[in-house]
Every structure is written in structure tokens, then in C-alpha cells.
Design a binder for these strands. Structure first.
Lengths: 231, 231
DNA sequence: CGCGGCTTTGATGTTCATCAAGTAAAGTGG
DNA sequence: CCACTTTACTTGATGAACATCAAAGCCGCG
């Protein structure tokens, strides 16, 4: 991890308005002064399960995974966060320690705001607190939705979904570098590494995708959509 | 559904302090005047997926399920809520319609507070908004945790978990009336009805539980715990 | 250059869904 | 209140989906 010294104003940040639109100059100044920018390399752990939650994190560049290790030592990925996401928003007000770990999947730039300052601003600015509440609602809706989706689907549907997710929500391209190992894909979808590989190979044989190591190209999005929907 | 006319003061409610502890007299009066008490019989739908979210609900007596229907017409239960739970808290600030339905599993008493009033109080009272945020964090932690648990377990572990859940978290007894049909248990755990029944029968044969229709008695909690943990 | 992690494929076995069929229980309308 | 219909429950047989185990090639890194 490296702390960035040439901090730009958060006002120039494309994500500024997403959350901080309601702040007045004074409040904004407080937040900005309580802010640090941190760089992480692929693979670095940003927060470890059990650490005290003492800052609000949001992602400016890169990609991170939230994950948890079970008592067999096996990891389970809870979600993938992309730039603009408020990584730990759901956790910061609970006054508990991290229930999961966070690690960088790509080289990542994270903004870290001291929690006490954020809490002060929430309690002082009613519009801001409503904004935060709304954001939290939206994040949990996504979790509920993704859980609902997963519970209906079997392996092919889940793999199709994750491929479409990366192409459409993350990279906005039909060719992309898969930022996860095959094992991590399995950890995200609750399937084994072997089955992940087999299903990807099957998709390749069926002409749905092209694979070259980590590079994946979607060849038939329509059929993938169909597999995604029908399970 | 029946609207109750003999509304007692919310101050006497055992759950009052859980959320409304920070309110001053004026704010409390506002909330109390915006409040309705509603009775639902087992099976009645309280909210239907797609309805506008215009009130905050909390459960004073009974038990409800939150569920969603997939495009095959199959229901999936997202969670079970018990007295003291803020049924739709995660949803109310998103400004979207209900993403799920809510139905009573037992005869149920629900408090319904007009949303606009709650929002006003949140924006006016900083301590109260922090309280709400904390509660939301806790609820989503539970969802994340339960999702993590489920993803590791197979059928026996899930059934053991749900039996322990009802005994320990809901009824605080080792003998209880299962408030769900076998099918609903399956809908909650993402397994088929047949498999639910088979696993329960197996537990009975193994002397873990006793079954008599809907009445279930846990005979060997230690072994059930073990099955729950080891999956 | 060799060690460990990632990837891949094949063989095998377990878990679980599906299908079928029957009994019991619970609503429903005359 | 009883015949009728529907829904819930149960068991067995079968097969599909998926995990597990095994083995080998690949690649990056110390």
C-alpha cells in the first residue's frame, strides 16, 4: 500500500456528486481534510476481517473483492466492487469490526475518510443523511437481488451471468481481461474450480465465448443472456 | 387485515427504545400520530412486490416472511422476521417500489408509520439518523452472514440451522410449532420439498428430533449444532 | 531450475432434483 | 355437516448435476 501525497480535490472527482452533493462548504472542507488516498497493488489486502472499522472507503480506480474465509480455510467472495462504489458503506455504522476482508483485484486507488468526521456530517446534515440512507438501501437491494438470482440458477447460468457482468457492468466491452482466477470465479459463484473451468470450456466449444488465458471475448451475447435468464 | 382502533402508546411498546430512544417529545408525537396498527391473519399478504413503499413497518407480534417469485412461479423466501424487527428498513429509503412481498406466517401485529414523517424525523434529528444507520448496518450484516453460511452448507446443514434458528431465536424452546410448511422450508433454504421432508425424516430416524406434524422437538441439540457447523 | 500456484482434463461417486404415486389434512360450497 | 377439491405431506425409483480425486502441463518467481 502506498499513500498518495498529491491529493486532488475531491470536488474534481467524478464520484463526488454521488454522495457529497449535499454538503456545504464547511462540511465539505471537513471531509476533504479527513481524507487520504491510498494505492494498492493487485493482490494486496486492504482490510482484514476483524479489523476495526474506522473509515469510510470508496473506490476511485481499480477493482476489489469482499470475501470471507470459512473454517475449512476456503474463501467465499461476497461481492466485487468497482469504481464509484462505497465499499464498506453497509458496515460503517454498525460499530462492529469488519465481518469480511477486502482485497485489490487490480491496481486500485481508494479514498479513505475518517469515520468520525463522516458520522459528524451525517448527524449535522439531514439531507446528507437521507442521501446516505438511500445509498445503503440501494446497496442492500443489490445484495438481495443477486442472492435471489443465484438461488435459482445452476452453474451455466451463473457463469453466463458473471461473464455478462464483467462485460457490461465493469469493462463495457466484449473483450476483457478476467480479473479473477478460475478459483476466484468459483468462490464467487459457489462452485468448484474444476466446474468453473469445465463450464468455460464448454461455452468455448459451443461458440459462446473465446478464451485465451485470462482474455475473454463474448461471441454470442444473446445466447449468453438466454442461459443467464433461463438458469 | 384489520386496523386496530385501540392503539396503545408506542411508549409502552417493548420495542420503542430499539429505534425511537433518541426522539424528543415533539418528534415522538409526530411519529405516534403517523402510526397505524394492523392485524394480519396467517397467510395474508402484507405487501406485494411492486407496491409503493410509503410506510415504515415494524413487527410487534407474530412472524412474517419476505419472499420473491421467480419466472417459473416458484417462491423464494429471503428472510423471516420476528417481533422487534424492522421489516422493510432496508427498502424504505431507496425511493423504489417493493422488490419483494411480505406475508404473515402467524397472526401478526404490525406497526405502520407514514414514511414522510419518518424521513422528516431522520433529517431533523442527527442522533436518530445515526441510530437508523446503525440498525441498517446490522440488518445487512445479518443478510451477508446468512448468505455466507448458506453458500458453504449442504442440505443437512441448512435444515439443522433452520431448526436451531426457530428453537433459539424465535421460540426460545426446544419444542415448537414449525410456522412454515415443508415447501416453505425448502423455499427458504433453496432445496426441494421432497428433500426437506426426507432430511427431516432422517433426522428423526437418527434421534436428532421428534416430529409430529408441525410440532418439532429438538432431542440432540449438540449433534444438530455439529451438523450445522460442519455443513 | 525447481517449487508452488494456476489451469486443464478425465474418471468416479455423492448429492440432490425430478418424476411418480399415494395418503393425510385442510378448505369450500351445497 | 358432508362430499368434494385442493393443498400438504411422504416414500421410492431414477437420473442429472455437480463435487471429489487424480494426474499432468504450464507459468512465474525466487
Amino acid at each position: 500500500m502506498k499513500i498518495k501525497n498529491d491529493i486532488l480535490s475531491c470536488k474534481t472527482c467524478v464520484y463526488h456528486q454521488l454522495l457529497f452533493g449535499e454538503l456545504n462548504d464547511f462540511e465539505y472542507k471537513l471531509v476533504n481534510e479527513a481524507r487520504t488516498e491510498m494505492l494498492f497493488k493487485r493482490g494486496e489486502v486492504i482490510k482484514e476481517e476483524g479489523e476495526t472499522v474506522n473509515s469510510f472507503l470508496y473506490l476511485r480506480r481499480g477493482l476489489v473483492k469482499l470475501y470471507k474465509t470459512d473454517h475449512h480455510g476456503k474463501d467465499h467472495i461476497l461481492s466485487i466492487n468497482k469504481p464509484g462504489d462505497f465499499v464498506n458503506l453497509l458496515a460503517i455504522f454498525s460499530e462492529k469490526n469488519y465481518q469480511y476482508s477486502i482485497a485489490a483485484l487490480e491496481d486500485t486507488l481508494v479514498c479513505d475518510v475518517k469515520l468520525e468526521v463522516l458520522k459528524y456530517v451525517v448527524s449535522a446534515n439531514g439531507d446528507f443523511s437521507l442521501r446516505v440512507l438511500k445509498k445503503m438501501s440501494q446497496i442492500s437491494e443489490e445484495i438481495i437481488e443477486s442472492r435471489f438470482e443465484q438461488s435459482q440458477k445452476q452453474v451455466k447460468g451463473r457463469i453466463a451471468q458473471i461473464l455478462l457482468f464483467f462485460a457490461e457492468n465493469i469493462y463495457h466491452k466484449e473483450v476483457f481481461q478476467l480479473p479473477l482466477t478460475r478459483r476466484e470465479v468459483g468462490e464467487l459463484l459457489s462452485i468448484t474450480t474444476e466446474n468453473t473451468i469445465r463450464t468455460l470450456s464448454e461455452f468455448r466449444k459451443d461458440g459462446l465465448i473465446d478464451i485465451e488465458g485470462k482474455t475473454i471475448q463474448l461471441l454470442d451475447k444473446e445466447r449468453l443472456e438466454n442461459i443467464n435468464i433461463t438458469g
